[in-house]
Amino acid sequence: MSFKSLKILSIYTVELFILFVLKCAAEEACETIPTEIHVTKEEYDDMGRLLRSCSGEVSVNKCEGMCSSQVRPSISAPTGFSKECFCCRENFLRERLVTLNHCYDPDGIRIDDEDGAIMEVRLREPDDCKCYKCGDFSR
Rank of each mutant, 00 (worst) to 15 (best):
A29R: 07
E42S: 10
T40F: 02
G48D: 01
I37P: 07
F20N: 11
V39I: 08
E42R: 04
I33Y: 10
I18R: 03
I33A: 13
Y44G: 05
A29M: 09
I33G: 08
C30L: 15
T35C: 10
G48K: 02
K23H: 10
E28Q: 14
C24Q: 15
P34Y: 13
I18S: 04
L19N: 07
V39T: 06
G48Y: 02
K41P: 00
K41I: 03
F20K: 09
C24V: 06
K23W: 09
V21T: 05
E28Y: 06
A29V: 03
L22I: 14
P34N: 10
R49P: 00
I33T: 15
A29N: 14
K41N: 06
T35D: 01
E42I: 03
I18Y: 09
A26E: 15
D45I: 07
E42N: 12
H38K: 03
A29H: 06
T32I: 09
E36H: 08
T32R: 14
E43Y: 00
L16P: 01
A25C: 10
M47R: 13
C30T: 15
E15D: 04
E31Y: 05
G48R: 02
I37R: 07
Y44T: 03
A29Q: 06
E28V: 12
D45K: 04
H38D: 05
E42T: 03
I18T: 02
E15Y: 15
P34G: 07
A26Q: 14
L16Q: 13
H38G: 04
A25N: 13
P34W: 13
F20I: 01
E27C: 08
M47L: 07
H38Q: 03
E43R: 00
L16D: 08
P34I: 12
A26L: 12
E42L: 00
C30E: 10
T32S: 06
F20E: 03
L19K: 08
L22Q: 13
I18P: 01
L22H: 08
H38A: 02
I37N: 05
E28N: 09
R49W: 04
V39D: 01
I33W: 06
T35W: 01
I33F: 14
